[in-house]
Computed example of a mutant assay.
Amino acid sequence: MQTFLKIDEFCKLVHLEREVIEGMIERGVLNTKTEEDGEIYIEASQGTMSIVPTTSSNLSVNMNALPGESFVEKTIGTILNLHEKVLDAKDETLDVLRNENKFLKEALYSMQELYDEDRKTIDTLTAQLKHSQEEIEFLKRKYKLMWNKAVENFNG
């Protein structure tokens, strides 16, 4: 999963100037994307790995380039900050999923209630239909007997 940060946030996170980061972007060291609003986003985990030196000669150069805190302290700080952001994003995602599950559960209960009500209505209508059919059959027999009696009386 890729996490993209705005270029300014990334600069704060890695404790480097924006110009240095832009130079790295131009060299193709950092994975970036540009949104419609013109804001540049940098892929966080790949970006921090690109900043960490791979050889000891780079380490000594970078240590001299960074005044104040040592490079290792800044790297650890960067990793911790990224870890906190990942944990916050994870918690936010879990909250969203819990709310979505709660909504789906309530929708399922609602659908079940509607299904039960519809089933009761169908049962009631089926019983009424059966009763009406029995009544129609009874009336057919009654009128047939009455007309047969009337024809016998007329003929007889």
Rank of each mutant, 00 (worst) to 15 (best):
151 V>R: 09
119 R>G: 00
122 I>L: 12
100 E>H: 11
21 I>W: 11
119 R>P: 02
126 T>H: 07
43 E>R: 00
87 L>K: 11
121 T>D: 02
8 D>L: 01
61 V>A: 06
73 E>Q: 12
91 D>T: 14
111 M>C: 05
94 L>W: 12
152 E>P: 06
56 S>G: 00
4 F>L: 05
111 M>W: 08
125 L>H: 10
148 N>D: 05
32 T>G: 00
28 G>W: 11
125 L>W: 12
110 S>A: 09
82 L>R: 01
113 E>M: 06
99 N>H: 07
65 A>D: 02
42 I>H: 07
89 A>R: 14
145 L>N: 13
101 N>M: 08
9 E>I: 03
22 E>W: 15
35 E>I: 11
115 Y>A: 07
46 Q>I: 02
130 K>W: 07
117 E>V: 14
149 K>H: 08
96 V>T: 06
71 F>K: 10
41 Y>W: 15
48 T>E: 01
125 L>N: 09
109 Y>P: 02
152 E>F: 10
36 E>F: 10
82 L>P: 06
148 N>L: 08
13 L>F: 15
156 G>Y: 13
18 R>S: 05
34 T>S: 03
119 R>F: 10
104 L>Q: 05
66 L>I: 08
114 L>E: 06
115 Y>V: 10
129 L>M: 11
1 M>L: 05
143 Y>E: 00
83 H>I: 04
57 S>D: 04
109 Y>H: 10
138 F>A: 04
62 N>G: 07
102 K>C: 00
19 E>A: 12
12 K>M: 01
110 S>N: 13
15 H>L: 04
142 K>I: 03
155 N>F: 12
124 T>L: 09
7 I>R: 02
69 E>N: 14
18 R>Q: 06
7 I>K: 00
113 E>P: 04
89 A>T: 02
63 M>F: 03
141 R>S: 07
131 H>P: 00
7 I>Q: 06
5 L>Y: 15
13 L>M: 15
103 F>P: 03
95 D>T: 13
44 A>F: 13
101 N>L: 10
58 N>Q: 13
68 G>S: 09
40 I>D: 01
22 E>Q: 14
10 F>A: 01
113 E>A: 06
60 S>W: 14
126 T>D: 03
141 R>M: 05
96 V>P: 05
117 E>T: 11
25 I>C: 03
71 F>G: 11
113 E>R: 15
39 E>G: 00
113 E>G: 08
132 S>Q: 12
143 Y>D: 02
90 K>V: 05
49 M>I: 07
134 E>G: 02
32 T>M: 00
143 Y>F: 03
140 K>V: 06
97 L>P: 09
75 T>V: 14
141 R>L: 07
85 K>C: 01
33 K>Q: 11
84 E>H: 14
26 E>F: 12
16 L>W: 10
91 D>E: 12
19 E>D: 08
121 T>F: 08
87 L>H: 08
61 V>R: 15
53 P>C: 01
102 K>P: 04
2 Q>G: 03
136 I>K: 15
50 S>N: 03
117 E>L: 13
108 L>H: 15
59 L>A: 08
131 H>T: 11
106 E>A: 11
39 E>Y: 15
65 A>V: 05
138 F>G: 02
45 S>R: 15
22 E>M: 12
138 F>E: 03
